Amino acid sequence: MSTIAKIEIEPTNPSDLKRRSLLQLAAGLAATATAIQTTAAISSQATPAATGKPGDFHFLSGNWKIKHRRLKDKEWDIFEGEASVIEILGGVASVEELRIPARDFSGMGLRLLDTERKLWADYWVNGKNGVLTPAPSVGSFVNGVGTWESAYKDGEQAILVRGIWDQITSNSCRWYQSISSDQGQSWQENWVMHWQRA
């Protein structure tokens, strides 16, 4: 991974302190509630490169503006959002609050490092229902590019999902997602997020 300037996030007002405390509490509760699920999910998938280490998501800490491009009904939907991300537990957890005000949408990304397996588990919580995804995507970074994969079924059809973090600098990065319905022989990109530090 490229050298990235260390960014410290310090709350500046009471509402920031409250938000940080709530995010830390949510991360701790989710980590406790899903430890068994994480182990099961990791062991049931093809094992990605075991290169995860504390601080891998340090680059994402801070406040961001995000340009989204999402494939919906074979058309690209373009919209903007924002996010606040904090790194906790000595770099073995990263908590993201994603907000899309124009769509009245919010959610939380929770990334946890299994330090023994050296793999990251990436969970999602939709702000509308507060439910943690039952199985995370699992992955790690290799040469500055992070790759996470998960699987689910759409009826009887097995679908693979791949999320990739790349183009990482001190002020920007990209995340994009692709899906495969043919066991990874071909992939269709369906979501791209360009992050710019606010």
Rank of each mutant, 00 (worst) to 15 (best):
W148V: 00
S178M: 14
T38K: 10
M1L: 12
A31D: 13
R162Y: 01
E149K: 15
Q24H: 06
F79V: 03
D182Q: 01
N129L: 05
Q157Y: 01
G127A: 05
K118A: 14
G163D: 13
E189M: 12
H58R: 14
Y176S: 05
W120C: 03
L160M: 08
T115P: 09
H68E: 03
L160F: 06
D77H: 10
K67T: 14
S43R: 09
T133R: 00
V142S: 12
D77N: 11
S181H: 09
P14W: 09
V138W: 04
E87V: 15
A83C: 04
R19K: 15
E189T: 14
W64A: 07
E156G: 11
R20N: 10
K153A: 09
V142A: 09
L29P: 06
S150C: 06
S2W: 10
A41L: 02
Y176D: 06
K74I: 01
V161F: 08
N129Q: 03
N126Y: 04
S94Y: 00
L71H: 03
S84W: 07
Q188H: 06
G91T: 07
W165F: 15
L22I: 08
F79M: 00
V131Y: 03
I36D: 13
G55Y: 05
A121V: 09
G130K: 01
E8P: 00
K18C: 08
A27V: 10
M1S: 13
W148D: 04
I100W: 07
R69S: 15
L113C: 02
L119G: 07
L60H: 14
S2K: 14
S186I: 06
S21G: 12
I7G: 04
